[in-house]
Amino acid sequence: MVRIVYPEAKYIKSIIDVLAKLADEVAFQLTSDGLRVKALDPARVALIDIDLPPTAFLEYNVPEDTIAGISTANLAKLLKKIKKGDKFVMEVTEDTITITVESISRRKYRFRNMEVPVPDIPEAKLEFNVEAQLLVDVIKHAIKDAEAVGDTLEIEAPDEVTLYLRGVGTTTTETKLTRDMAALIDLVVKEPSKSAYQLEYLKHVVNLTRIAEIVVLRFSSDMPLEMEFSLAEGRVKYLLAPKAI
């Protein structure tokens, strides 16, 4: 039987909350390389790719490759009452998935292992002209600000030292970051680029800002945006297609 133990259930909850916004059912792929979840939203605009290596777990016992099919809405509901420090234990057999939340008490949930096809995910080989590393709070606030004025976030890197995050609507908001600011850790611009993304999709990842400290943004003009959130161990990647002009 497959059994994995994750030390901080709160992290799993944040990840599940994001997944629940994109897909009904997801396949947790458990292999000797770690836990991998890939999901595409029904409109095929956003792709989330989660990778947690075995070292991220307290216990990682996966003798053979297994797929756990989970209803995200159900799981999100179960994990609602989670406290900091709770342990997340998942046991998977062919028919059932048992999730135990270990805190001062031990809560056990058992449900059926659903047959979820591993989605056919377009492998996009993308070239990014801009790569920026910044503190997650910056992107979180930029998304929140932009939400107040409209439905689009525009990202622009006009030269090697500046990055703009703009909320575009009837009014505009702008966050300007330059290389000498503490919030912008690193910026590499091969070619000045500018692109716009729907906040509807961006706001989903705000949840992830709770579990990561640094985010790497990669994009090119009118090309998808890749956001990589690094956890202590493992990472979550979010790929979002741009708005067309």
Binding site: V45, P224, A241, P242
Partner: peptide
Amino acid sequence: QTTIDDFK
């Protein structure tokens, strides 16, 4: 809105 498939 473009989709990810557009960049395949």
